[in-house]
Simulated assay, not measured.
Amino acid sequence: MAAICVFCASSNAIDRQWLDLAAQLGKALGPRGHTLVSGGGRVGMMGAVADGARAGGAHTLGVIPQSLVDLEVADTQADELIVTTDMGARKNLMIDRSDAFITLPGGLGTLDELFEVWTTATLDLHRKPIILLDPAGFYEGMWGWLAGLADTEFIRRPALAQVTTVSSIEAALDAVERGTRH
């Protein structure tokens, strides 16, 4: 049983396939005994993963900065909703309250969160599994670019091994449960 932080897009202008992926991941958490930790929003993939988690019987913890509460996008249905002063405090609390991280497709905010947990893992500040759930090749270009950075030693090869890339929800949850970091 793990508290799994899911990073994903919060935009409403998302293709249905990504909303469905988020909802399916959320729904898969409950039967496996996991808790969802999310960015505390009710829109886009973030809202879909939270709704899916509740539909699957998972406990949901949302962490949201006051500025987004003020925009009325907070997931007020969350079992626990924590309001922070800013985005930095939000990320720190999400990292602290999570046992593992799964990243779905997303934009700048999602990448920021992924790189934050990945960087802190490379500095050995935590040993929590980091999973990139990429069923449709969304991150292939980024991953190729990062591998090229390892070829030039801007990134150490062991850092690449700290992220497990999978193509299915089941594989993502299996990786979390195994506690793998490769």
Rank of each mutant, 00 (worst) to 15 (best):
D51P: 00
R178I: 00
G106K: 12
Q24N: 14
M45K: 02
F7R: 02
T103V: 15
I155A: 12
D15V: 08
T110S: 13
D112W: 03
T35H: 10
T85E: 15
G47S: 07
A175C: 06
L108P: 02
F7D: 03
R127M: 01
D70A: 13
A28M: 09
I14G: 00
V69I: 11
E80M: 09
L123N: 00
C5W: 09
G106Q: 13
T180M: 12
I64W: 03
D79E: 09
M87Y: 12
Q77E: 15
L108D: 02
A13T: 08
A55P: 00
G107W: 12
A2V: 04
I169G: 05
V49C: 05
A147M: 11
E170H: 09
T103I: 15
I130G: 02
K27E: 14
L173G: 03
F101N: 03
E80W: 02
A121R: 07
G26C: 06
D86T: 03
Q66G: 01
C8Y: 11
D20R: 13
P105A: 07
V43Y: 04
E80A: 09
P105I: 12
A78Y: 12
A55Q: 14
L81Q: 05
P105R: 04
D96G: 02
Q77P: 01
R97C: 05
A28V: 10
T85F: 10
G109Y: 07
A150T: 09
A74H: 08
L93A: 02
T165V: 14
N92Q: 15
A150E: 13
R127A: 13
I95Q: 14
T76M: 14
G33L: 05
S67T: 12
R178H: 06
I131F: 10
L21R: 00
A23F: 14
S168N: 08
A23H: 14
D86S: 08
P135N: 07
P135W: 11
Q162N: 07
A2F: 10
E153C: 05
T103Y: 11
E177L: 02
N12F: 01
W145N: 06
L114A: 04
G109T: 04
S10H: 13
D51A: 14
T164V: 13
L111V: 13
V69T: 08
G148T: 11
L149N: 08
F154S: 03
L29G: 03
V73C: 04
L21V: 05
D70Y: 04
L68W: 11
G148A: 14
K128I: 03
M45F: 07
E170K: 08
I155N: 10
A159C: 04
V63G: 04
I14Q: 10
D51L: 03
D134Q: 06
M1E: 01
M142N: 00
D96H: 06
A50Y: 09
S11W: 05
S10N: 15
A150N: 07
S10P: 01
I131A: 10
V37S: 07
A150S: 15
M87L: 15
T180Q: 14
T180V: 15
D134P: 09
W143Q: 12
V43W: 06
H59T: 12
P158A: 05
L61C: 08
T103W: 13
T103Q: 09
M46Q: 01
